[in-house]
Design a protein around this nucleic acid. Sequence first.
DNA 1: GTAGGAGCTGACACAGGTGTGAGGTTCAAG
DNA 2: CTTGAACCTCACACCTGTGTCAGCTCCTAC
Lengths: 129, 129
Amino acid sequence: MGNGGRGMRIGELARRSGVSERSLRYYETQGLLPAERTPGGQREYGDWAVDRVVRIQTLYAAGLNSRKIAQLLPCLKDLDGRPSASATPQLVAELSSERERINGLIADLVLSRDVLDEVIALAAGMDAK
Amino acid sequence: MGNGGRGMRIGELARRSGVSERSLRYYETQGLLPAERTPGGQREYGDWAVDRVVRIQTLYAAGLNSRKIAQLLPCLKDLDGRPSASATPQLVAELSSERERINGLIADLVLSRDVLDEVIALAAGMDAK
DNA sequence: GTAGGAGCTGACACAGGTGTGAGGTTCAAG
DNA sequence: CTTGAACCTCACACCTGTGTCAGCTCCTAC
């Protein structure tokens, strides 16, 4: 090893978080995932990075874009402490609207899932008969 | 008028379903929304089309692509009657996997919504204090 | 017949996170 | 020092439903 336990590099973070190195680098350019650098220029992450990456993925999955996530993250209390920023009224308005969208989307997803279940059940029924 | 009550044209369907004409034409190319044609070549839809378009939108929102929706639709019982086809085992497998994805996505959405709520509540708290 | 709103096709562009490859550098084990 | 894995940057491509524009045709009320 000889690492000194300072931090993991991108490969390990990718493996641990289940996200590609490509995406991790992209997150950095978007200001979502700051990284220390070794003297040689390689990225170094602390353990907190894993949780952050997972959180980022969750928010992406919910349809938020990089810009919103970047504004949002500092307003969250991290595992250890308190938020490093509070949302501006402007941001709150945007997030509220996202919230609405997400609620509608959940409803659509449930509806769609039921539709899938119906088709699957019907096929199973045919099969059994 | 002089329509004879035969069917609505694309503009009305767009207005009634809340979907752009562009999208309706696209749905037709994807085999999702068959349309009659007037002798002059204009599309004509029955009232059933509104529901179908809404259904298509719901499925798109759930992340299904045109191909899957096209396979899925005939396996659904329409408002009036019974399905015109049953799902093949292959399709059932695909849909089951979609179902899994949707369930995971719902979980992500709920998580994300909670995150948004936290940020919003925190900003409101700051505001009140 | 005519005017003008509505419809038609075809084509180009976009969003934006991710895959992929080239070509070069860093790191650590031996 | 050498070597090979891991990492770096840069750049191009993709997917796919939708917006938009251009240029033309249809339909219907007058």
